[in-house]
């Protein structure tokens, strides 16, 4: 099988799928055709933009351009991770970046240098897509951990304050909340590991097979990717929670109730 490169005509056929969705929305009065159109257009623009941008990066074989691009992406990911919280807390941006950056750096280094042994080490065809994907997962993990941490601290504020009153430091007083936050961030990853290949064929595997790769090779890649996702999510969540927790307390180990609002 050779690589299938969809022509503009092929893409037009794919757009029929979108027409079907809009048709359904109109017929059933779902009222989502407008937001669907906006989303579809945005999605298209973003994907083509990324496609061309990455094609450009593939052409520039400079380590500082490749790592610089990933660094900028990590800043954006950290911002998006906090903005996605149900109630964004000022001050969590830094911890989120540390989590996302740390989780991505470690995982990407192991995969690109240890497993795939990229040559040169910054080979953009490997580093950009893998780094980007790990970053995306790290961001999801960080955002989940942030929401969960906030909810746990809020629900446990009496308990935490009681422990503080017993002379415990804030990391110990909030230990359960921290654990729950990291655990909560990992649940979707564990679930997807359990169902991968059975209920769900990941997009990358599908893409690789369409690109002409041997299914078993695609499976090997997927195996590495799943472990990679688990590593980046847990590392990001753990790093974020450790740093982010400090935002919820003052230097005098006082819980900052004002971040939560009424009970």
């Amino acid at each position: 099988m050779t690589l299938i490169d969809p022509t503009p005509a092929d893409l037009a056929v794919a757009s029929l799928l979108y027409g079907a969705v809009v048709g359904l929305s109109l017929k059933e009065g779902l009222g989502v055709e407008k937001s669907l159109t906006v989303a579809a257009l945005r999605m298209g623009v973003q994907l083509f933009f990324v496609g061309y941008l990455v094609r450009f990066l593939f052409g520039v074989e400079r380590w500082y351009v490749v790592t610089g691009a990933l660094f900028l992406m990590s800043l954006y990911a950290a911002r998006a991770g906090v903005a996605r919280m149900k109630r964004p807390v000022p001050g969590l941006w830094g911890p989120m970046w540390i989590g996302v950056f740390g989780g991505t750096l470690f995982t990407t280094a192991v995969v690109t240098q240890g497993v795939l042994k990229l040559d040169p080490w910054y080979a953009p065809e490997g580093l950009i897509p893998l780094g980007g994907m790990i970053l995306g997962n790290a961001m999801n993990g960080g955002a989940l951990a942030a929401d969960r941490l906030h909810a746990e601290l809020k629900a446990r504020r009496d308990e935490i304050e009681a422990l503080l009153a017993l002379g415990l430091t804030y990391p110990r007083a909030a230990r359960e909340a921290s654990r729950e936050a990291v655990r909560g961030a990992l649940i979707p990853t564990v679930n997807s590991m359990l169902t991968v290949g059975i209920v769900h064929l990941p997009g990358i595997m599908v893409g690789q097979m369409l690109g002409g790769a041997d299914p078993v090779t695609a499976a090997k890649y997927q195996f590495v990717i799943m472990l990679m996702v688990a590593a980046s999510v847990s590392l990001t969540a753990a790093l974020f929670v450790k740093r982010g927790l400090a935002v919820y307390f003052t230097g005098a180990h006082q819980l900052r109730h004002e971040l939560f609002g009424e009970k």
């Binding site: 009496d158 308990e159 304050e161 009153a165 017993l166 002379g167 430091t169 005098a252 180990h253 006082q254």
Partner: peptide, 24 residues
């Protein structure tokens, strides 16, 4: 002044029993 103490240490000397009992 309170600021000169490490707060967790101070709280073992000045021990608060909160209004709502918290049981673990």
């Amino acid at each position: 002044p309170y600021g000169e103490y490490f707060a967790p240490t101070l709280r073992r000397q000045v021990a608060l029993v909160p209004q709502t009992p918290v049981i673990f």
